[in-house]
């Protein structure tokens, strides 16, 4: 059974965090790391799952 909202704990090292900082500084993906992770994840899903369905 999946709740309405599901929390996933995810860890990044400082190098991976630098990548998130680049995205953060672009202002296109959100203002917090949590928002950026969620929006980039959705972009990846769109790219990957859409491609796998075609």
């Amino acid at each position: 059974m999946i709740d309405e909202c599901h929390k996933v704990i995810v860890r990044f090292n400082q190098q991976q965090l630098q990548l998130l900082d680049i995205l953060k500084n672009s202002g296109k993906f959100g203002s917090t790391y949590e928002e950026i992770v969620r929006s980039v994840f959705r972009l990846y899903i769109k790219q990957t799952l859409d491609r796998s369905q075609t």
Binding site: I2, D3, E4, C5, H6, K7, V8, I9, V10, R11, F12, N13, Q14, Q15, L17, Y33, E34, V37, R38, F41, R42, I45, T48, L49, S52
Partner: peptide, 27 residues
Amino acid sequence: NYPLRIHEFSIELTVEDYLNLQKLERM
């Protein structure tokens, strides 16, 4: 960069997001 520093985040996913995450795992 040794030792690596680890940063932890709690990410809230919607039901749809979470179902998609599970699809990725199955893939």
